[in-house]
Computed example of a mutant assay.
Amino acid sequence: MKLIHAGDSCIILKLSDELSPAANDLVLEISTALSEGGPRGIVEISPAYSSIGVYYDPTIIEPKEVEEWIKASQTRKKPATSIRRDLYRIPVDYSDAYGPDLQEVAKETNLTAEEVVKLHTRTRYRVYMLGFMPGFLYLGDVPAPIRVPRLKKPRVRVPPGSVGLAKEQTGIYGIESPGGWKIIGRTPIRLLDTAKSPPTPFKTGDLVEFFPISSEEFSRLDGISVEQTKIG
């Protein structure tokens, strides 16, 4: 465990140098403990792959107090297996209209497009973190046969709901933004709603499954809330 000061209002708790389910489980355990209550002046707890950002108001609480509180969280954490994880089943249209890179991925992996889709949809993915844009989901781990690098030249615009691949990760774009992931499909589900707090229900540790839909089904489901895809 290493504490890193990132400016005058954030301390990063680095838990591991590796990106793995075990490291992310530890993130889940400690971030859950931190989120259950803290001293006045704590602003936000932001879990990532193998680290946690703790944001605070330096006019209210001293950095040393924040450090001590973070260290004390080790004694309050619960096993990751006891922490609630929601499961979402996300529909995806994998047609060429919404998956402009699917054929390229198939060519790179010596598979057919249908085989790529089959492999992508047979896995239950973990939500490792949310970032780099609002609502973007970092999911893993992608089956080895369909792990491909990012685009050599990122796109200026990637539509919201686009589902992409980048090595061992798959992800969903929450809003329109630039991006370099290889896009193999798009979901009609509205992942982000800025009128709500929080604007997305996803959290670190949640689970995601994808299933293919037709273009007709895409039109019928277009814009429905992500809460409607939650199982249980």
Rank of each mutant, 00 (worst) to 15 (best):
residue 31 S to V: 01
residue 92 V to D: 00
residue 97 A to Y: 06
residue 62 E to I: 04
residue 125 Y to E: 10
residue 151 L to T: 02
residue 72 A to L: 06
residue 174 G to A: 02
residue 166 A to W: 10
residue 154 P to T: 01
residue 202 F to H: 01
residue 1 M to A: 13
residue 211 F to M: 04
residue 191 L to H: 00
residue 89 R to I: 12
residue 79 P to Y: 08
residue 214 S to Q: 04
residue 204 T to S: 15
residue 192 L to M: 11
residue 25 D to C: 13
residue 96 D to F: 06
residue 80 A to R: 03
residue 12 I to R: 14
residue 167 K to N: 14
residue 65 E to W: 04
residue 117 V to T: 08
residue 187 T to H: 01
residue 116 V to S: 03
residue 227 E to F: 02
residue 86 D to W: 15
residue 69 W to V: 05
residue 183 I to P: 00
residue 172 I to M: 09
residue 190 R to A: 13
residue 108 E to V: 12
residue 123 T to H: 08
residue 147 R to W: 05
residue 201 P to E: 10
residue 36 E to T: 02
residue 144 A to V: 12
residue 114 E to W: 03
residue 75 T to I: 13
residue 114 E to K: 15
residue 228 Q to R: 14
residue 101 D to N: 11
residue 16 S to E: 00
residue 88 Y to P: 02
residue 33 A to W: 01
residue 136 F to I: 00
residue 178 P to E: 01
residue 27 V to W: 10
residue 3 L to I: 11
residue 103 Q to M: 11
residue 96 D to G: 09
residue 178 P to D: 02
residue 173 Y to H: 03
residue 56 Y to E: 08
residue 231 I to H: 05
residue 144 A to Y: 06
residue 126 R to D: 09
residue 51 S to H: 15
residue 40 R to M: 12
residue 195 A to F: 15
residue 158 V to P: 06
residue 212 P to M: 04
residue 165 L to Y: 07
residue 64 K to A: 11
residue 53 G to Y: 12
residue 215 S to G: 14
residue 132 F to V: 09
residue 16 S to A: 15
residue 199 P to C: 03
residue 63 P to Y: 09
residue 134 P to S: 08
residue 39 P to G: 01
residue 51 S to D: 07
residue 4 I to H: 14
residue 100 P to F: 07
residue 69 W to S: 04
residue 56 Y to D: 13
residue 83 I to C: 07
residue 163 V to Q: 03
residue 59 T to D: 14
residue 27 V to I: 08
residue 229 T to N: 01
residue 54 V to H: 02
residue 189 I to D: 02
residue 185 G to F: 11
residue 142 V to G: 04
residue 19 L to R: 03
residue 99 G to F: 09
residue 103 Q to N: 14
residue 67 E to P: 07
residue 170 T to C: 08
residue 101 D to G: 05
residue 93 D to R: 12
residue 96 D to Q: 12
residue 11 I to Q: 04
residue 1 M to S: 14
residue 137 L to G: 00
residue 199 P to K: 00
residue 138 Y to K: 03
residue 46 S to D: 13
residue 95 S to N: 02
residue 176 E to K: 10
residue 13 L to K: 01
residue 101 D to C: 09
residue 172 I to C: 04
residue 92 V to M: 04
residue 218 F to M: 01
residue 46 S to N: 13
residue 52 I to E: 06
residue 201 P to Q: 08
residue 154 P to A: 00
residue 169 Q to M: 13
residue 138 Y to N: 08
residue 123 T to A: 12
residue 222 D to V: 01
residue 179 G to L: 05
residue 12 I to N: 12
residue 168 E to F: 14
residue 3 L to C: 06
residue 40 R to W: 09
residue 214 S to W: 05
residue 20 S to N: 04
residue 195 A to Q: 13
residue 127 V to M: 03
residue 176 E to V: 04
residue 125 Y to I: 04
residue 163 V to D: 00
residue 192 L to I: 15
residue 107 K to Q: 13
residue 5 H to C: 12
residue 83 I to V: 07
residue 170 T to G: 09
residue 108 E to Q: 15
residue 200 T to R: 00
residue 149 P to G: 10
residue 73 S to V: 09
residue 12 I to S: 07
residue 162 S to V: 05
residue 43 V to E: 05
residue 120 H to I: 06
residue 213 I to A: 02
residue 4 I to Y: 11
residue 87 L to F: 15
residue 36 E to M: 12
residue 130 L to S: 00
residue 199 P to L: 02
residue 14 K to M: 15
residue 91 P to E: 10
residue 86 D to K: 14
residue 49 Y to I: 07
residue 136 F to R: 01
residue 119 L to N: 00
residue 32 T to H: 15
residue 170 T to Y: 03
residue 171 G to F: 10
residue 64 K to V: 11
residue 36 E to N: 12
